[in-house]
C-alpha cells in the first residue's frame, strides 16, 4: 500500500529548480534517498514533513493532503521529522528539550508525556545524559537526541534527513536496529550519503539528481547496474572514468574493461557512481 504519493512536485529557489517535476510512490518500510549535494533531497523531505509548501504538484501522505490546513495538522500528528540541521536549543537539557517538543506534539497529559520522553531517551541510549545541557553533548549525541525528538509520539511516518552523520559505529548499529524495527510497521524515509546504510537497511533506494529521481528500485537492482563494470587493473585509466588505487596497489576502475582487467565484486556505491557518471553529461548539456 502506498503511504506517500508524489505527483509532479516542483520547488524553485529563484532560478534554481530544487525539485523539478518529481513523481514517486512510496510504501511502508525503509526508503533511502541518495544523491549529490544540492540534488534536492532536503527540499523533498521538507515538503513531505510540511515544513515547506511546494510551488507545484500534488502530495498525498498517509491519505492526507498537506495543502489543506486541517489535513496538514492531522498529518503533523502522525509524522516525526529530523531536519538536516535540527538547531537544538543549547541551553536546554536533553530531557527539557524532549519534554518541550512532546508538548508541541500535543502530549499534554504530564504522566503520559514523561513516560514517552523516557521511552525515546532509552531508544537512543541517552537515558544517562538526560540532565546534560545540549551544548555539552557531543555531536553524535546531539544527532541521537534529534532522532529521539522525531520518535516522540510513535509517528506512522518518520522522515530523517541525514540521521547518521557523525554517529560512531556502535551507535550506528543500534540506529540500524531501531530503524529496521520501526520500518516493519511504519514508513521511514531517510536521506544519506552513506551507501552502506542504504545497503544495510533500506528495502528501497531512490537516487535523486537535479530535482528528479534518477533511479528508483531495490539496493540489489542498483548494485546490479554495476555488474560487469567494475575492474581491478594495474594501470590507471586515461579517460574520465571514475577510479581509485586500493590498498593492494591495484586500480579499481568503473566502466569498460581495461586490457588487463579482472572483474571485481560491485558494491552499491559502484552502482550509484556509474548511474550519476552516466547522467552527468546530460546535466551539463541542459
Amino acid at each position: 500500500m502506498n503511504t506517500v504519493s508524489i505527483d509532479g512536485l516542483g520547488k524553485r529557489y529563484g532560478a534554481t529548480p530544487a525539485l523539478d517535476g518529481l513523481d514517486l510512490e512510496l510504501g511502508t518500510g525503509v526508503t533511502g534517498f541518495l544523491g549529490p549535494n544540492g540534488a534536492g533531497k532536503t527540499t523533498l523531505l521538507r515538503c513531505l514533513a510540511t515544513a515547506l509548501a511546494p510551488d507545484r504538484g500534488r502530495l498525498r501522505i498517509l491519505g492526507l493532503d498537506p495543502a489543506v490546513p486541517a489535513q496538514r495538522t492531522e498529518l503533523r500528528r502522525r509524522i516525526g521529522y529530523l531536519p538536516q540541521n535540527p538547531g537544538l536549543y543549547p541551553q536546554f537539557t536533553a530531557y527539557d528539550l524532549l519534554d518541550y517538543v512532546a508538548v508541541l506534539k500535543e502530549l499534554t497529559d504530564g504522566r503520559r508525556r514523561r513516560a514517552e520522553v523516557r521511552r525515546v531517551l532509552d531508544e537512543v541510549d541517552l537515558t544517562d545524559r538526560a540532565r546534560t545541557k545540549v551544548r555539552k553533548l557531543s555531536g553524535g549525541m546531539r544527532q541521537r537526541l534529534g532522532l529521539a525528538l522525531a520518535l516522540l509520539g510513535q509517528p506512522a511516518l518518520l522522515i530523517l534527513d541525514e540521521p547518521t552523520v557523525g554517529i560512531d559505529p556502535e551507535q550506528r548499529m543500534l540506529f540500524r536496529a531501531l530503524i529496521s524495527r520501526v520500518g516493519e510497521s511504519h514508513t521511514v524515509l531517510l536521506s544519506t550519503h552513506q551507501t552502506e546504510d542504504v545497503g544495510a537497511l533500506c528495502e528501497r533506494v531512490v537516487v535523486m539528481n537535479a530535482g528528479r529521481a534518477a533511479f528508483d528500485g531495490t539496493p540489489r537492482q542498483l548494485i546490479n547496474r554495476a555488474d560487469g563494470r567494475v575492474w581491478l587493473s594495474t594501470t590507471a585509466p586515461t579517460g574520465s572514468q571514475p577510479y581509485w588505487r586500493n590498498a593492494d596497489g591495484l586500480y579499481r576502475r568503473l566502466g569498460d574493461r581495461p586490457d588487463d582487467g579482472r572483474p571485481a565484486q560491485p558494491t552499491l556505491e559502484d552502482g550509484y557512481l556509474l548511474l550519476l557518471h552516466r547522467s552527468a553529461p546530460a546535466r551539463v548539456a541542459r
Binding site: 521538507r46 514533513a49 510540511t50 515544513a51 490546513p69 495538522t73 492531522e74 503533523r76 500528528r77 509524522i79 521529522y81 531536519p83 540541521n85 535540527p86 538547531g87 537544538l88 536549543y89 517538543v101 508538548v103 508541541l104 506534539k105 500535543e106 525528538l149
Partner: peptide, 14 residues
C-alpha cells in the same frame, strides 16, 4: 528560533 524546522512540523504549529 533555531529549532523552527522541528517546531513548524508539529501539530501545535500554525
Amino acid at each position: 528560533d533555531p529549532m523552527h524546522e522541528i517546531t513548524d512540523t508539529t501539530p501545535a504549529a500554525g
